[in-house]
Amino acid sequence: MHILATEGLTKRFPTVTAVDQLTVTVGSGVTGLVGANGAGKSTLIKILLGLLPPTGGTAKVLDLDVTAQGAEIRRLVGYMPEHECLPPDVSATELVVHLAQMSGLPRTAARERAADVLRHVGLAEERYRAVGGYSTGMKQRVKLAQALVHDPKLIFLDEPTNGLDPRGRDEMLTLIRRIGTEFGISVLVTSHLLGELERICDHVIVIDAGRLLRSSAIGEFTQATQTVTVEVDEGLEPLAARLTADGQTVSRQGRMLVVKVAGAETYDVIRDAAVDLDLCLIRLEQGRHRIEDVFREEVASV
């Protein structure tokens, strides 16, 4: 089932085209939406929430049309904005209870749900204190809690790791992964950092200047570039020559060789070459391929 689907979606502002003929479908699970700053991610989310009318094309979220059924969509989805959006003089509990009511939950249910989600996002006693005194990490958790409090079917997280330190980033990413798996809530998470999405997403959509560059399962991203890195003590040149002669695709990176894996026989060829040339093999490592590399290639080719 498609959680959301767009067809030729376009949004033009007077001076810029933010979303350009975007046709994409997203299934359940965690989906990453990647693009540089200004690629149109936030605009796309606003369109999907039914807050910004598209200039052209159609978009459906949970099988509801964004232009005609915006209010219905907003009842079923949660949204965590990119920017700071918390009033400083109220406590996290009070704010989240209030926003749960704004999503239509009766007061007692709102209280229960607020306590539940604040616990899930990891806010303990501090939730009774005014938000103004919170650290960035805690504020991000409150923002996430308010997006989850009405138990949405789908949540849009706009740059949830923005401004967090490495540890906070890790915790936030783990939490997002849990939301997508344990909680059973589909997630569309945006980021300009591919590396972090790689860890938590089932599917990645790459956009640039409002256009779709690529949309595929995370596995396809990494499978496309299987390589092995070879490091030898001396004799890099003869090894490279030998491997090339054996029909392998070899490129040199500093003191190492990067060999494209054609199949299981590639490893045998490398081993045999090292033995035959009597080389001291220091390292044979599976290439740590980041989707970043794919992204770089695709941007370069556009």
Partner: peptide
């Protein structure tokens, strides 16, 4: 003022209320 100053408005508008 607080909703405008601290940009709380999007949290309301991303809910069913217009």
């Amino acid at each position: 003022a607080p909703d405008l100053r601290h940009r709380v408005l999007p949290l309301y508008l991303s809910r069913p209320v217009a």
